[in-house]
Amino acid sequence: MEMPPELEDVAGRDEQILVTERDHDGGEIAVDFGPTDADATVDVVGDTAIVVIGDRQFEFPVPEGASDVTVNAGVLTIRD
């Protein structure tokens, strides 16, 4: 699974955001949006994922082959 450039750009603009890729059981991308009191939500509309945390919004294309896009405790996880 390929990392969307938009996620790499987000991490480059905000040092509290950590993006990691893991290649086990098909692949996984994890994005930790850092400490926040706001609940994080994710919606997938067509081929686009929209993450909202408080007053911040992030949009990026869902990687080809992704079967699961979830967010829990401020961490977005995309799995094959």
Rank of each mutant, 00 (worst) to 15 (best):
E8G: 06
N72C: 10
I29E: 00
Q16P: 01
R56G: 04
E8R: 14
E21L: 07
G65Y: 02
Q16N: 14
D43K: 08
E64H: 06
G54Y: 12
A49F: 09
P5T: 09
Q57N: 05
V10K: 12
E6R: 00
A73I: 02
P61A: 09
L76S: 06
D39K: 14
T70P: 08
D47K: 13
E59M: 10
A38Y: 02
I17Y: 05
D23N: 12
R13K: 10
D37S: 07
F58I: 10
A66L: 03
R56K: 11
T77R: 10
A66Y: 01
E28Q: 13
L76T: 11
D55I: 03
E2K: 05
V10H: 01
A66S: 14
F60W: 11
V71D: 11
P35N: 10
V75Y: 00
E2G: 06
V45T: 09
D32G: 00
T48C: 12
T77A: 11
D25T: 13
D39I: 04
F60S: 04
V71T: 10
P61D: 09
A49G: 09
F58S: 03
P5L: 01
A38L: 01
A73K: 13
V52F: 00
D39T: 08
S67P: 07
G65N: 07
E15P: 15
E64M: 03
T20L: 05
G12L: 06
A40F: 05
S67R: 07
V71S: 00
P4G: 03
G54A: 04
D80G: 07
E8I: 03
E21T: 14
V45G: 00
A73M: 08
D9E: 15
I53Y: 00
V71P: 15
A73H: 15
V51C: 11
N72T: 13
P5V: 13
V69H: 08
E6G: 05
V19L: 12
N72E: 15
G54V: 09
V42R: 01
N72M: 04
P61M: 02
A49L: 04
E15A: 11
P35G: 06
L18K: 13
L18A: 10
I53M: 08
T70N: 15
D43T: 14
E21D: 09
A66E: 03
V44T: 03
I17G: 07
I50P: 12
E15C: 13
P61L: 07
D9I: 13
V44R: 07
P35C: 08
G27H: 01
I29S: 00
V31P: 05
A66M: 02
